[in-house]
């Protein structure tokens, strides 16, 4: 089952996920700037920022424990793994069977737990606040995410992402109401999990309602760079999951070299669209009060459950 093409695809995809992540974030920011009638910092700004941060000397608190220093690396490793096994380019990834969608949710949970622990490590008030809120959003988002994925899993009778992609890409054209529900729910979870408006604001700093930024306040230098980079990969990975579940056309199947250029172009097009859509969404919505977040996410959960129920009903 492992062949040269598969390994090549795997390597291309993993490297691509890591390299393309900041570009994708740059694109979202650029779109947002345009929509807000600003000129915007340019697509490559996230790379410049990463480079600058890597060059800087990190400053950490006196009583920071080893866990604090290890967390950025763990985070980066988790996100790399996630970016590597989501079939964004091809389904013939030798590593992809190592983790199905449930395990993927587990990877994100692992990263979240480590980041929250690191936030608590310094013992500052902002850190604890951020960790607490992050875990709150997390525990609400995780069941919603799983229900979304379950709906897709029921349609294709598998939790392996590659199988789901292959099934969904090959079905005859049919409108699945259940999948539409799941897509909306997934979008809501994506917004919450990636610290986007309306749950959190990625552009904020020093705001009492911040979540993600409050957790990484104490980080600087290379640690901060790794965390930012990991967040970018995470956004990319989530988008790639969304693409795989709801718009899987164009992803290369089998060990077929010729499909690669098509897959690349398709992926690029989809990312451009997704990024623009995300920016538009963020522009038109306002940030919620913190305690509206449970309502937001329970709505996402509800949508996912409804999608699943409708799927069962349609079959019955």
């Amino acid at each position: 089952m492992i062949d040269a093409a598969g390994i090549a695809f795997q390597i291309v995809q993993s490297v691509l996920a890591v390299l393309i992540g900041p570009l994708y974030v740059g694109w979202v920011n650029q779109c947002r700037a345009w929509l807000q009638n600003r000129s915007g910092p340019g697509l490559l700004q996230p790379y410049y920022m990463l480079a600058r941060l890597f060059h800087k000397e990190p400053v950490i608190a006196e009583h920071a424990s080893p866990l604090f220093r290890a967390t950025p690396y763990v985070l980066f490793g988790c996100m790399w793994l996630a970016g590597g096994i989501v079939p964004a380019l091809a389904t013939d990834l030798p590593f992809a069977p190592a983790a199905d969608i449930i395990a993927l949710v587990g990877v994100f949970a692992l990263a979240r737990v480590f980041l929250s622990l690191a936030a608590l490590d310094i013992g500052t008030s902002f850190g604890g606040l951020g960790a607490r809120r992050e875990m709150m959003v997390g525990f609400l988002a995780e069941p919603a995410m799983l229900m979304t994925l379950f709906t897709a899993a029921f349609i294709s009778n598998s939790t392996a992402l590659t199988t789901i992609v292959e099934t969904l890409a090959h079905r005859e054209f049919a409108i699945y109401p259940s999948l539409a529900f799941a897509a909306v729910a997934f979008l809501m979870v994506l917004l919450a999990e990636n610290a986007r408006v309306p749950v959190d604001n990625p552009a904020t700093h020093l705001e009492l309602t911040m979540i993600h930024e409050a957790m990484i306040l104490e980080y600087s230098g290379r640690h901060l760079a790794l965390i930012e980079w990991a967040s970018a990969i995470k956004l990319f990975a989530y988008t790639a999951i969304g693409i795989a579940l709801f718009a899987p056309w164009g992803i290369a199947e089998g060990s077929n070299w010729s499909a690669l250029p098509v897959a690349l172009v398709a992926l690029a097009a989809k990312l451009v669209l997704a990024g623009a859509g995300l920016a538009a969404l963020e522009t038109v919505s306002a940030k919620f009060r913190l305690f509206r977040a449970p309502e937001f996410l329970s709505t996402a959960f509800l949508l996912a459950v409804l999608g699943m129920l409708i799927h069962f009903l349609g079959r019955g």
């Binding site: 290890a70 690396y73 763990v74 980066f76 490793g77 988790c78 790399w80 793994l81 590597g84 590593f95 069977p97 190592a98 983790a99 199905d100 449930i102 395990a103 990877v107 009778n157 598998s158 939790t159 392996a160 199988t163």
Partner: peptide, 18 residues
């Protein structure tokens, strides 16, 4: 085809990347 999980690859990837 339905589901699989391989924690060793999982762990190995994370450790290698770290």
């Amino acid at each position: 085809a339905q589901a699989s999980y391989n924690p060793l690859i999982f762990l190995a990837t994370i450790v290698t990347v770290v």
